[in-house]
Simulated assay, not measured.
Amino acid sequence: MNSIFNSTFEISLRVLLILEDSNESLYSSDMLAAIDFMAVYGQDFGVSDSNMHGNNLFKYSEFATRRELTKEATKNLVLKGLISVNCNENGFTYTITTTGTQYCASLKSDYANSYREMIIKVNRYIKDMSEKNILSLINEHSIRSLRKGGN
Rank of each mutant, 00 (worst) to 15 (best):
M1D: 12
M1I: 11
S7Q: 08
T8E: 15
F9V: 14
E10S: 15
E10P: 12
E10Y: 12
I11Y: 01
S12H: 03
R14I: 04
R14H: 08
V15K: 02
L19Y: 03
L19C: 08
L19H: 07
D21R: 14
D21W: 00
S22R: 06
N23G: 12
S25K: 08
Y27K: 05
S29I: 04
M31E: 14
M31G: 13
L32G: 05
A34V: 08
A34C: 10
A34T: 02
A34L: 11
D36H: 13
M38K: 15
A39I: 01
G42N: 13
G42S: 13
F45E: 03
G46N: 00
V47E: 03
S48Q: 10
S48W: 05
D49S: 15
S50P: 05
N51T: 04
N51V: 08
N51R: 07
H53E: 11
G54A: 11
G54W: 08
N56F: 13
K59M: 13
Y60H: 15
S61F: 11
S61N: 13
F63P: 05
F63A: 06
F63I: 02
T65F: 07
T65I: 00
E68V: 13
L69M: 12
T70L: 07
T70A: 03
K71V: 07
K71F: 10
K71P: 02
E72S: 14
A73V: 06
A73G: 07
T74H: 05
K75D: 10
K75T: 14
K75L: 12
N76I: 06
L77Q: 07
L77H: 04
V78W: 02
V78E: 06
V78R: 05
L79I: 08
G81N: 09
I83Q: 07
S84Y: 14
V85D: 07
N86L: 10
C87T: 14
N88W: 04
N90C: 12
G91Q: 09
G91E: 07
G91C: 05
F92C: 06
T93N: 08
Y94L: 02
T95M: 03
T97A: 04
T98R: 12
T99F: 13
T99A: 15
G100H: 05
G100I: 06
A105Y: 09
L107R: 09
S109F: 00
N113P: 00
Y115L: 01
R116M: 03
R116F: 02
M118F: 06
M118L: 09
I119V: 15
I119A: 02
I120W: 00
V122H: 01
N123H: 05
R124F: 05
Y125M: 11
D128Y: 02
M129R: 11
M129Q: 00
E131F: 01
K132S: 12
K132L: 03
K132C: 07
L135I: 10
S136L: 13
I138H: 04
I138Q: 04
E140M: 13
R144P: 01
R144W: 03
S145M: 06
S145K: 11
R147S: 10
G149V: 09
G150L: 12
N151D: 10
